[in-house]
Design a protein around this nucleic acid. Structure first.
Lengths: 402, 402
DNA sequence: GCTATTTCGTCATGGCAGTTTACAAATTAG
DNA sequence: CTAATTTGTAAACTGCCATGACGAAATAGC
């Protein structure tokens, strides 16, 4: 059972799956899970009115979910309202958990999140992975994964799946890293290197960051661009609450949008790509700094100290970002833009020129550019939560494995 | 009953509609319609295996569709295979029809398409609409609509809906033309001006063109960009077989993607937008021609005659398009690009420089750039077919009105 | 304090949808 | 001409949700 968790589900009239009563039941179980998960403790009656089924139907659905341990009965509510109080239902803090992992340039991280969305265990290993071959890195990651699983186990949690965020392009199979320039990896099938005991998904770090923003952000809209940078500049395109991945899985390559078509050559073959102006390397060079460890921290520190070269470099990066984003906004018409990853930390110095450029170039009301609250935690949390979402999306599938 | 036909259906776990048995039935009726519509005459058994239901279930579904006149029994098949031959089922050529309409800069057009996809009636009125106020234009259009409906009526067709393609931005309500520069319209509620007897959808001409490409194109993929030009340059973003509309409905504004960020001022407030290089007006100017009637024909004629100024102007437009499309391809990773509308007629002179630019700037296998077979007919056909698709998507809804 | 009202959760009943099983009809293979 | 195969349909069955009724547990009004 190693199916990709977040496969784009075929939707609309084209979907080939027959519509049978069992499917209906499964979808309604999912609806109950989502309602309870999203709106806190809820009585059966409240769930029924939320999802449009009758109380009787919800009763049987909830019974089943309680039997399989996905939902817990907290006890009677104490409301000021008239009538018999309902019995509060909540998603269980035990049972299946989502294991999220991140392969960063300078670290490895793993965490376990329960169905309630709480992080229940974590493990980190610092140290660069640049240029290391996949096998030993994944081996270390696997060790962290096992440690986290072991740590969560006494609390009654078992891994329902593993999702790995990587700084690079991932094929649509959700397993293969096609290219990760920072790691110098190419066509690595992580599915073959990682333990096969549970469902695995691999995805781009920007994508998981975007999903984290969608699921955990305070008032993130269902349509936005999540821009993230770790040397390369990637964007997660969230459209109507789900990721736009592209045919090959390479959508969101904001870094190679042409900004100055006659500008400097880029590794991608083009000229004047955004990455040549707002990529980490380019900014460091423009700021007169040498590449090294913790480059983002260095930039942020210098900028905070008022270093004029760094400030100018970031200002220009913001302008270039603004130009590239103008194109993206015209194409996608999202509700907003969120700066995540390394960009979040540098936002104070990027935002002014970025917003100037955007408002200069786009008509109509300005689209809000906000900064991720999650910062560097985004991808890891997004990965773990993607597993949790998969459980909420089809609780019946998990119940079979429990 | 004037609900928008092609509203983005909420999908996935978030959709609020309860999953009830009647809904199941409706979806399965739709599945049968789609199977029969897409794969020609089919026996009940063939439909059953296609959609994954049992023959018995399909039998009752088909019975219902035959009773409501949406499907016809053609009679026994004559196969070389062993076993009792099936009875061929086909979508009916009578009953509900889709009325498509187009408000062009230089013409109005209306057509009626039956469930089989055949155009059964059409009407055109030539003459510019530039600068005319909405009311008289829509009045003329309404007259054409009524004529087409009357023409189709003796064949047993009745209008299941009206879809109108306009050269401009349309709000997500599917009724309001927010801005149509060529017509000089702004915030026009077509829903108030058009007859209210049947469901109405209004959409961008590029969007309907893209849908036509998706539904009628020979081997069009489910993920592509359909680029179209009528003064403005618009693109339909088809992602996984459905349109990406954006929050406000303005997605696909390729014309205002920055190509040379320091280039000439654009009406949108920006600088160096694609439209400044590849828009109709810009190309005419670059070619040393004055604007007038049938501008595209003029350009194509001169180019075919070998006029060097025109050729150069088109070559440069192709280059600019290539730069803007590079950005779009990096963001969306579609399977291909289709040139439609006015661009289709000019493709021979645009394509070389466009493809050069694309292959220069993008790594990996070149994405195919193809030319629409439908040409200027695309938007009209797409509009009419969108109504037909709505019927196929929910035959039960139509049966109630029959 | 007591009764009426309101709301909750559950149960029994019923309707509806698709499955299973069986069978007659219509064709080909030999 | 018989056996094998496939189609379409009917009858019985299972599963799921809706309906309506009921007891339980709270509040509101007197």
């Amino acid at each position: 059972m190693t199916a990709p968790l977040h496969e784009a589900r075929p939707t609309g009239p084209g979907r080939a799956l027959p519509d049978t009563q069992q499917g209906m039941r499964r979808r309604n179980l999912a609806r109950v899970m989502h309602a309870v998960s999203a709106e806190g403790p809820l009585s059966r009656a409240a769930v029924a009115s939320r999802i449009g089924l009758t109380r009787a139907a919800v009763s049987t659905l909830v019974d089943e979910l309680i039997r399989t341990g996905l939902i817990e009965e907290l006890g009677p509510e104490r409301p000021g309202r008239v009538g018999r109080p309902g019995s509060a239902l909540a998603v269980s803090g035990r049972g299946p958990s989502g294991i999220g992992a991140e392969i960063g340039v300078d670290h490895l991280a793993v965490c376990a999140v329960d169905l309630r969305g709480e992080v229940r265990a974590r493990a980190v290993r610092h140290g660069t992975n640049r240029g290391r071959s996949p096998a030993p890195v994944v081996e270390e990651l696997t060790a962290l994964v096992r440690r986290v699983i072991a740590e969560a186990e006494p609390a009654g949690l078992w891994p329902a799946g593993l999702a790995v965020a990587v700084p690079g392009l991932v094929a649509r199979d959700g397993r293969t890293v096609v290219r990760a320039p920072n790691l110098d990896w190419q066509d690595v099938d992580l599915g073959a290197l990682l333990p096969g005991e549970f469902p695995l998904t691999v995805d781009n770090e920007a994508n998981f960051g975007g999903l984290a923003e969608l699921w955990l952000g305070a008032d993130t809209p269902r349509d936005f661009l999540h821009v993230s940078a770790e040397i390369g500049i990637g964007a997660a395109l969230v459209v109507d609450g789900s990721l736009l991945r592209g045919t090959r899985g390479f959508a969101g390559e904001l870094g190679h949008v042409p900004v100055h078509p006659d500008g400097p050559r880029c590794v991608c073959g083009g000229r004047g790509c955004l990455e040549q102006y707002a990529g980490e390397e380019a900014v460091l060079r423009a700021a007169g700094l040498a590449p090294g460890e913790d480059r983002v921290g260095l930039l942020a520190g210098r900028a905070a100290d008022g270093d004029p070269d760094v400030r100018r470099a970031l200002r220009e990066a913001g302008t270039a970002l603004g130009i590239a984003l103008t194109g993206a906004l015209n194409l996608l018409d999202p509700e907003g833009v969120v700066l995540g990853g390394a960009l979040a930390g540098l936002a104070p110095w990027l935002l002014p020129s970025l917003e100037t450029e955007l408002s200069r170039r786009t008509a109509g009301p300005a689209r809000p550019v906000s900064v991720s609250r999650l910062g560097p935690e985004g991808p890891l949390l997004g990965a773990a939560h993607s597993v949790v979402r998969a459980v909420l999306d089809d609780p019946a599938a998990v119940a079979e494995r429990a």
